[in-house]
Each structure stands twice: as C-alpha cells, then as structure tokens.
C-alpha cells in the first residue's frame, strides 16, 4: 500500500460519510451529491485494489497476512455497491444515512488494511 494514498482515501471516506450522515439528518433523500460521494469512495477502492496488486512488483512488499488483507479489500468493494442498491430501492432520508454509514465503515476498513499490510505475520 502507498501510505499517502491510503491516508487520502481514509480522509475522503470520512468526509463523504459525515457529509451523507449530515444530509440524511437534514432530511435529504439520496441525491447525485450523496451517491456521487459514495461513487468516489468506491472508485478509490478500485484504485487501491490495483495498487495492492501492482505494489509488490515494484518493491513495495507487504509483510502482513494477505488472505486477511484481500478479504477486507473485497468486502470493502462490496459495501458501497450494497449501499447504492439500497439507496435506489428505498428513496428516503434513511438511505442517505445508510450511504454515510457505509462510507464511514470503509474508512475503518481501509485503516485496518494499512495495519494488516504493515504488520508481520505471527
């Protein structure tokens, strides 16, 4: 993993999460803004996946448990899709909060992925 990219990614996910929770509390239904923020979070996860695959070949070797790392990454990739599906089915302010909850969960998961990448197995 690339530390600065991961840091930026966590920051984006936190901002997107807080924004959507705030929009939901304000009574806003899922909009281009909230779904766009979620799409950005998902896009960064896809970039992270590419980084994780390419990094070892460029000398950026992980020392942690890669099974655990990829379980996190694949789960993280699913979360925004599930939240977006939810938002399209249920058009209420609660869906906006669900989007926010999902983005905040991604922030935690990406933070954990960085820990796993850098923590030696055993």
């Amino acid at each position: 993993m690339i530390v600065w990219f991961t840091t930026a990614q966590v920051a984006v996910a936190v901002v997107a999460g807080l924004l959507c929770v705030a929009l939901g509390l304000a009574g806003r239904k899922p909009s281009d803004l909230s779904l766009g923020a979620l799409a950005l979070v998902e896009l960064l996860l896809v970039v992270q996946l590419v980084v994780a695959i390419v990094a070892p070949a460029t000398g950026n070797e992980p020392v942690g448990n890669m099974l655990e790392f990829y379980t996190y990454l694949v789960s993280a990739l699913i979360v925004p899709l599930a939240a977006a599906f939810w938002a399209l089915v249920d058009r209420s302010k609660w869906s906006t909060m669900v989007i926010g909850t999902a983005a905040l969960a991604i922030a935690v998961m990406v933070y954990r992925m960085q820990e796993i990448w850098t923590t030696p197995v055993g």
């Binding site: 789960s75 699913i78 979360v79 599930a82 939240a83 939810w86 249920d90 209420s92 609660w94 869906s95 909060m97 669900v98 909850t101 999902a102 969960a105």
Partner: peptide, 14 residues
C-alpha cells in the same frame, strides 16, 4: 431509524 439498525447489522454480518 430501524433501517440504520439493519445497515449496521449488515456490516457486522459482513
């Protein structure tokens, strides 16, 4: 608000 409960349950299940 029950929907938030379901969302959190979903995340925990995952």
């Amino acid at each position: 608000i029950g929907r938030i409960l379901v969302a959190v349950y979903g995340v925990l299940a995952l």
